[in-house]
């Protein structure tokens, strides 16, 4: 990815965050968590497009988010459990990366 492309992605990302922030004022409260989870997926997307970067764990995390984020519209509880699951997997990965047994 060239600097110019990265600059464009960051710009788009900023606009996403600002419009999502405005949405948080009026939208259902669970849409805030949805936007943050979506933001995580978008950051991973940008990271994937940076030349030479390939993080298997983050790739899987993004795939999981993109597949399951819509359950927020079916069940608040299930979506909350889904975020907890994303966190649990990420903490295991953090420990693995720090050389601590998961």
């Amino acid at each position: 990815m060239t600097d110019k492309e990265l600059n464009r992605e960051i710009f788009d990302y900023i606009l996403f965050l600002l419009t999502a922030a405005r949405g948080c004022v009026d939208e259902p409260h669970m849409y805030g968590p949805l936007r943050l989870v979506d933001a995580a997926s978008r950051i991973i997307g940008t990271y994937q497009r940076v030349k030479g970067v390939d993080d298997e764990f983050l790739n899987r995390l993004k795939q999981l988010i993109d597949e399951k984020k819509y359950i927020v519209m079916e069940s608040e509880d299930e979506f909350t459990r889904f975020i907890d699951e994303l966190i649990a997997q990420s903490v295991d990965e953090m420990k693995r990366r720090s050389g601590v047994k998961a």
Binding site: D12, L15, F16, T19, A20, G23, R35, D38
Partner: peptide, 8 residues
């Protein structure tokens, strides 16, 4: 799409 977080 850039100003519409719901345009998924």
């Amino acid at each position: 799409k850039k100003i519409a977080p719901g345009y998924l």
